[in-house]
């Protein structure tokens, strides 16, 4: 009885029409064309959660935390995870192609034009300014990321190990990645106390 009434009550408010593959492609194409400055995650959130209401806040955050622990860029990982949630593998494909396409076309054109004009002193000088700005920009991204995710001195030790291995000893990034990730995962291994916490109260 109670189950039946519960599902009946839930029915009218339940699923909002799922976006079509084309809807997904177009929304991600817009994000791919307008998300200047690397912070595409903010654009993704405003489009997927606020504007189109395709995902709720909780799902978005969950997908975002997964996207950060996968190889690949956050933006493309988010596009794949969100597209997959909305329309399966083809949704994921439409989303990732959409978000990459505008920038990829621009950068392809930039690569070709660069070959024709890069030896001009004015272009070299301008690009030196652009590179200086990019250094500041990327460092700002690092600082805001670090201030959000750093949890203690142990994290600082792992960061130091990675930096010294790559920049001082020129160890391949692949080995540093595997070694530091393994070491840090073991350091943050599940504790017995966590397990007891997770047991359902009887």
């Amino acid at each position: 009885m109670s189950e039946a009434s519960a599902s009946a009550a839930a029915a009218p408010t339940a699923p909002v029409a799922k976006p079509s593959i084309l809807d997904i492609f177009i929304q991600f194409l817009i994000i791919g064309a307008t998300s200047f400055g690397g912070g595409a995650v903010a654009y993704l959130k405003s489009s997927l959660v606020t504007k189109n209401k395709w995902l709720d806040d909780k799902t978005f955050l969950e997908l975002f935390s997964i996207s950060q622990s996968l190889p690949g860029l956050n933006t493309t990982n988010m596009a794949i995870l969100a597209g997959d949630r909305l329309r399966g593998a083809s949704g994921a494909f439409a989303a990732v192609v959409g978000v990459i396409l505008p920038g990829a076309i621009l950068m392809t054109a930039a690569g070709i034009v660069y070959g024709m004009h890069a030896d001009r002193p004015l272009v070299t000088a301008a690009l030196k300014g652009v590179a200086a700005a990019a250094s500041g920009l990327l460092f700002a991204t690092f600082i805001s990321l670090a201030s959000k995710t750093l949890r203690g001195w142990l994290d600082v030790v792992f960061i130091a190990i990675a930096v010294i291995a790559v920049n001082w000893f020129h160890v391949s990034v692949l080995y540093v990645l595997l070694a530091v990730a393994t070491l840090a995962t073991i350091a943050y291994r599940p504790r017995r106390s966590d397990k007891t916490l997770e047991r359902p109260a009887s």
Binding site: S69, A134, F142, L150, D155, F158, V163, N167, A184, Y188
Partner: peptide, 30 residues
Amino acid sequence: PWRTSIQNGLAPTALGLMLAGLLTFGKTAL
């Protein structure tokens, strides 16, 4: 339970590699 451990382990690894990349980049850019 290891899912959280892996996520907690990857966070400083990613930060460390990003800083290493930044230093390499800055060395040429600046």
